[in-house]
Design a protein around this nucleic acid. Sequence first.
DNA 1: TCCCAGGCTTGGT
DNA 2: ACCAAGCATGGG
Length: 292
Amino acid sequence: MDIIAENNNIILENAVDFDLKDIFTCGQCFRFNKTGDSEYTGTAFGKTVRISQCGNRVVFYNTSEADFRNVWFDYFDLGRDYSEIKAQLLKANDSVMENAVHYGSGIRILKQELWETVVSFIISASNNIPRIKKIIELLCENFGEKHCYEGNVYFSFPQPKVIAKLSEGDLSVIRAGFRTKYILASAKAVDSGEFDLTSLFELSTADAKKALRSLSGIGNKVSDCILLFALNRFDSFPIDVWIKRIVEFCYFENREQSIKTISEFAAERFGNLGGIAQQYLFYYAHDLRIGT
DNA sequence: TCCCAGGCTTGGT
DNA sequence: ACCAAGCATGGG
């Protein structure tokens, strides 16, 4: 892959294992939207970017070289060799994974902002992706910082200190239902310093998970998502209804298995690449529409 | 009308 | 330790 700076755009030539549609519709991220043919626009780390792709050529529009180096390179996990990861996952001669990897071959695990990921996956509980996106959009529009980009209005994700000052009534505009009090409680814990988000980066996966689960609204599955999508702990394997379905349907003979069994299966089968395997399977399961 | 959605918390055994 | 209800809201 070659990185070229040109006219305040950044161009990736010969990008491999990279597809904008796979990346932004596989369910890991809720703040990028399709704005054209093979083009997506969104905001992360307070910066809005428009990206288009034609084959192996990807263009980041109106983006400085510094922003690309400091934000987008890591955000899109561009330093990692996904071909090697795929090869590892396919070693087991696993036809299910082979289909899943083929289907979502351009997926990359984004390294998203920690606080945004915490709130986003609190909102994800017992919810569906279009409505998760809608609630997050309302949260940003109402309480984020407004800025303009290429003639359109975008919003940053509201910081803990902003949300911590709100009441449940204030937050009723986002229509998050029973999740509202979890968002508020977590914001207050972070804002007060009672919970130190940055310390998570230094902890082991198990310790970081234990810490995350002390926040309200964060249990086993949501903590796994945060570990995977913000801290890039690929050994975490979030188990939701879709993963449960595809594992039970495609891998198990007996479909009356417990979450713990699925977790053990994933650890044995996918090891420290479980998180990436999970994302290929999650995306593929939606395509198969298993159980629907 | 009923069921489900990237679950978690709480209160019962 | 495990289990079920309850939790708001919206869409099929």
